[in-house]
Amino acid sequence: MKALAWLRTSSGRALVPLAIVVLIGCVFHQNGAFFEWSTHRAMLREISVLGILACGMTLVIVAGGIDLSVGSVMAVAAVSVSLATMPLGLGGGTAAALVVVLGTTLGLVSGALIARFRVQPFIVTLAMMVFARGLAKLLAGGKKVTNYVALPDGSSTTVDLPALFRAIDSKVLGDHVSVVTLIFAGSLLVTWLVLARLTAGRYLYAVGGSYEAARLSGVPVGRTLVLAYALCGAFAAVAGICQAAQETHGDPETGAGYELDAIAMVVLGGTSLAGGRGGVGLTLVGALTLGMLQKILSLNAFSTEARLMLTGGILVFAVLFQRPWQSQQ
């Protein structure tokens, strides 16, 4: 059993489901399609938006909370970045910065309510989920925000897609890597920095581990909770910008249900929903496991129905596997 000691570590346990999924891919490779880089590039591109959401979710879950509003905040961001760049004609950088500020503000509001009034995060972010969805629809005026814009004189015209959208939707490094994937990688890096290299990260783990112990130890508990939700909102905004770029429009309905996928990625990695343990590396493993699985199922032409059912089953399996093992006597 000694050789398997690494299986006891959280990263070891997270890697097992991924390894199994890769193995399945190697067996059902669909005439070698699983061994093509383009397959994996597409997979990485597909998980990137969810992965960015999962980064923010990791921060919140480590702090012992949950954020159900990320899908809606993402829609607000997608709509507002589309509005700012296409009908209003703002520069891509300015628009992106404003939208990230907007997302951060929404997260800040959730965090402040949770920290100040000690309301359950589930309730507060559920309310924010509904509110932000409404805000997205209000901003969009009930339809998708596209590059087909109305002019002041009443006529309509088609404007060029903003450079920001084209840049995000392109591929770099000899067409080998999508830009959204790089943004995902950047998000992972930022999250890692916060959790592992900043005092704020220590406070996040402490608050998630035990709120009362953290408070008595002199941790700024309120500020820490607000920070977690604010950062989560910022990541949701980034995800929304990427989503708008990929869809080439701002859809107020986008991102519905994404919060659950993001939570699934975090949990699949082995970060505990109870808070106080886990990390962003685990979230990456979780995201890869989920993405790879989806890819294999679609390569093998499983129907959507079967894919959903299989994904659910595998989630349960992976989470059962990640429960701490009883030490053997």
């Binding site: 581990g209 035990s210 009362e212 112990a213 130890s217 002199g218 700024p220 106080g276 343990r277």
Partner: peptide, 25 residues
């Protein structure tokens, strides 16, 4: 707050270990 007390050099060790130790860290 305990944080304000800590800033002035007052440190508290709780009676219950669940309020003083972070077992996962």
């Amino acid at each position: 707050t305990p944080r304000a007390a800590l800033a002035q050099g007052v440190c508290h060790l709780a009676r219950d270990r669940s309020e003083s130790v972070f077992p996962a860290r």
